[in-house]
Simulated assay, not measured.
Amino acid sequence: MKKVILLAAFGVAGFINAKTSEVKVLENKTEVSDVKPFQLCGVSVTYYDGDGNVSGYDMITSDQSSLQNCQMWQSLVIHRLQKAGFSVSMN
Rank of each mutant, 00 (worst) to 15 (best):
M1W: 06
M1G: 13
M1A: 10
K2W: 10
K3P: 04
V4S: 00
I5S: 06
L6T: 09
L7Y: 01
A8C: 14
F10N: 08
G11T: 07
G11R: 00
G11W: 01
V12T: 01
V12P: 00
A13H: 13
G14F: 07
G14P: 03
F15S: 13
I16T: 04
A18Q: 07
A18S: 09
T20N: 12
S21P: 11
S21G: 14
S21V: 13
S21Y: 15
E22R: 02
V23H: 01
K24W: 04
L26I: 06
E27T: 14
E27Q: 15
N28G: 02
K29A: 12
K29T: 14
K29P: 12
T30M: 15
S33L: 14
S33C: 15
V35A: 13
V35F: 15
V35N: 14
V35E: 12
P37R: 15
F38T: 08
Q39A: 10
L40M: 14
C41H: 05
C41Y: 02
C41K: 10
C41I: 10
G42D: 09
S44R: 10
S44K: 13
V45S: 10
Y47F: 11
Y47M: 09
Y47Q: 03
Y47W: 11
Y48T: 13
Y48I: 06
Y48L: 11
D49C: 05
D49W: 07
G50W: 02
G50L: 07
G50T: 05
G50A: 08
V54M: 06
V54Q: 06
V54N: 07
S55N: 05
S55Q: 11
Y57W: 09
Y57H: 13
D58M: 06
D58Q: 11
M59Y: 02
M59V: 08
I60F: 00
I60A: 00
T61I: 04
S62H: 11
D63R: 07
S65H: 13
S65G: 06
S65T: 04
Q68N: 15
N69Y: 10
C70S: 11
W73T: 04
W73L: 09
Q74V: 14
Q74Y: 05
L76P: 03
L76K: 14
I78W: 01
H79P: 06
H79L: 09
R80Q: 10
Q82P: 06
Q82I: 11
K83F: 12
A84Q: 10
A84L: 12
G85P: 09
F86Q: 02
F86G: 00
S87V: 01
V88F: 01
V88C: 03
V88N: 03
V88R: 05
V88G: 02
V88T: 03
M90V: 01
M90F: 02
M90D: 01
N91H: 15
